[in-house]
Design a binder for these strands. Structure first.
Lengths: 199, 199
DNA sequence: GTCTATACCGCGATAGAC
DNA sequence: GTCTATCGCGGTATAGAC
C-alpha cells in the first residue's frame, strides 16, 4: 500500500511490465500479486498490459523465464571467482542473501496456482535442478581432485546443499530475522567441512 | 473442486470447523483457503461459522495453535522410540514424510498474510523454534556422551537439520516428486555422519 | 446456535475509443 | 499501442429470521 510506483521510464512498456512482475513476484509471490499492481509499478495503463500479455499468467511466465536466465548467469559469474571446487561450494552457501526475502524460485513452490500451471512451474523446477547439478559437478570435481572424500553421493549432497539454503529462508521468514538464516548457513558449513578429506 | 465434504459429524460445530481448517491450511495454505471451503468441509452453515469465529484469521489462529500442540507431542512420542541421541537426530531426518504436502508450519512462511498477523505467525515461529531446540538438545546430549564430535555448534547444526527438512519440501514440490525429497534426506544423513566421533 | 439472503469489494479480464 | 470505462465473479463478512 506504499511504493507502488517505481517506473523504469527508459524501457518499453512490455519490458517495464516484465521487470515490475519480476520484482512483485519476489516480494509477494504469484497469487498475491495483482495485475493492477503490476500495471502501477510499470507505469502503464490498464489496456496496455492486456495488449502485451493476454493474462496474468503470461506476464508471470515471461518474468520467470527471465529469472532463470539471469540467476543462472549470476551464479556462473559468482562461482568463477573461486578457484577450488570445494571452496566454490562453501562460497555458494555463504553467499550474502536477504534471508527474509527468500529465493525467487523457492518462494513459488508453496503456491498451488504456480504448481498447477506448467508454464509457471517449469522454470522453477528447471532452475532449482540446474543449481543442484551445478553443485553436484563441483562436488564431483572436488572428489576427483582429492579435496573431498569420495565415499558419498555428490548428487544427494548437492540436493541437500540447495535445500539448506531454501530451508534457511523458511526459518528466517518464520522468525523474521536474518540471524535465523545465518545460523542455518553456519551449520551447513560445519556439516560440509565433515566431507573434506582428512589430513 | 472435488472432495469438499468430509464431515466429522460426531464433534461439535466449532470442533469440526477447527479440524477442517487444519486440513485445508495444510493442503492449500492460508490465503488460498476460503471461509466457504472451511464451512463446506466442516458441514456447517454460513452463519454458524461466523457465530463461533468472527473472522477467517480467528479460525486459522486456533487451528495453528492446535497444530503446535499436536505436532510437538507427536515429535516427543516419535523420538521416545530411539534410545541414543545421535540416533534420534538421524531418526528425525529419516522420518517418513509426504514431500509434496510439506510441513504444516513451513508452508505458512511464504504467505505474507500469515507473516503480517502475529496471531498466525506466532505459532509458526514458536513451533519451528521448538523443533530446533529439541534437536539442539539431542546434539548436545550426543556430544556429552561422546557419540558426536564436540567441536561444532549444536545450535547452528540443529537449525540446519530443520532447514534441510524444510528445503526438501521445497524441492519436492518444485519437482513434483517424492524422490527429490528423499535425495535431500539422503544427503542430510551423509552430512550428519560426518559429525560422528571418529573411531 | 444455526440458517438463508444479501452486501461490499477487489481481482481478473474485456470493450471500444483514440 | 495506449487509454478509460465497464463487467462478471468470488472472497469475506453482515443482517436478521428461526
Amino acid at each position: 500500500m506504499k511504493s507502488t510506483e517505481r517506473h523504469h521510464p527508459a524501457a518499453s512498456s512490455r519490458e517495464r511490465l516484465v521487470e515490475a512482475t519480476r520484482e512483485l513476484l519476489w516480494e509477494q509471490g504469484y497469487t498475491s500479486t495483482t495485475p493492477a499492481e503490476i500495471r502501477a509499478r510499470a507505469g502503464v495503463g490498464q489496456g496496455s498490459m492486456y495488449h502485451h500479455f493476454p493474462t496474468k499468467a503470461d506476464v508471470a511466465a515471461e518474468a520467470m523465464l527471465r529469472n532463470s536466465a539471469e540467476l543462472e548467469r549470476a551464479m556462473d559469474d559468482y562461482l568463477k571467482q573461486t578457484p577450488s571446487p570445494a571452496g566454490s561450494v562453501k562460497s555458494y552457501l555463504s553467499k550474502p542473501r536477504d534471508g527474509q526475502k527468500g529465493c525467487r524460485f523457492g518462494r513459488m513452490t508453496l503456491d498451488n496456482a504456480v504448481l498447477e500451471n506448467e508454464r509457471l512451474r517449469g522454470p522453477v523446477a528447471d532452475s532449482l535442478a540446474w543449481y543442484r547439478r551445478r553443485i553436484e559437478h563441483l562436488l564431483i570435481d572436488g572428489q576427483a581432485r582429492g579435496e573431498l572424500r569420495d565415499d558419498f553421493s555428490a548428487e544427494a549432497v548437492a540436493a541437500t546443499i540447495i535445500a539448506i539454503v531454501q530451508g534457511a529462508h523458511v526459518l528466517a521468514r518464520a522468525d523474521r530475522s536474518q540471524a535465523a538464516f545465518d545460523r542455518v548457513i553456519e551449520g551447513g558449513l560445519t556439516l560440509l567441512a565433515g566431507l573434506e578429506r582428512r589430513a
